[in-house]
Amino acid sequence: MKFYVCIKQVPDVDAPIQIKNGDLMQDTDRMVLNAYDASAVEEALVLTEEHGGEVEVVLVGPDKAKETIRKALAMGADKATHITTEDDVDYDSAVYANILATFFKDKEYDVISCGKQSQDTDAGLAGGMIAQHLDLPYATNAVGLSIEDDNLIAKRQGDSGQEIIELPQPCLVTCSNDMNEPRIPSLKGIMQSKRKPMETTALSDMNLDESALSAKTKVTGYMEKPEREPGQKFEGEPDELAQKVANLLDEEENVI
């Protein structure tokens, strides 16, 4: 089986952030492997360990995103393609999907897997877009995957329960981090990652036309979220606390 996993380098949402002149600034330039993609990598590794095959990760991003590719290789992916962009492009999901779909056009694969969303923007769009461009059967928000014969079986968290969906290969799936606990690379893994094949292609060499690379949506600025007013904190005897808060909810807030 051949798995392609689309991985993205994103800012660590746990790192301190602030806004300066409408721009998002991180105290430290902390970039990480998108958590949802880490789950996609993990699942691909588990499935190929079980059924044989190969996992290749693909990342579209600037040079410094190599660190993130290494992380996926250290987890156990076999090889990588890095499609390099300029440092400060403002592409939206659609542009990344165009690039990735173009990359996949002449490739052979059984499954393409993506994260269900980028953890910084929560857009959740690229996967479905790639599937549409490549005319692939797809499922989003998978919380479990398995292989039966030539089908990928996805358990998808839907609005009213979990949908068990059978996808003929080749297909595309987007993964939730509820799927698994991504492995932490071992030291051996980290050491091996440096020697694994990594193909680097400049985006400019891919001959995408202007329109495919121009984003129809733009972020024009950032704002601090209005903070909730700090409330009251109660400590003391459970009985008294319970009574006090219950009464406040009833009389002050009228929400009971």
Partner: peptide, 11 residues
Amino acid sequence: VMAAKILSDNK
């Protein structure tokens, strides 16, 4: 965005 810590303006 950023786990809903920040709001972004979009067009």
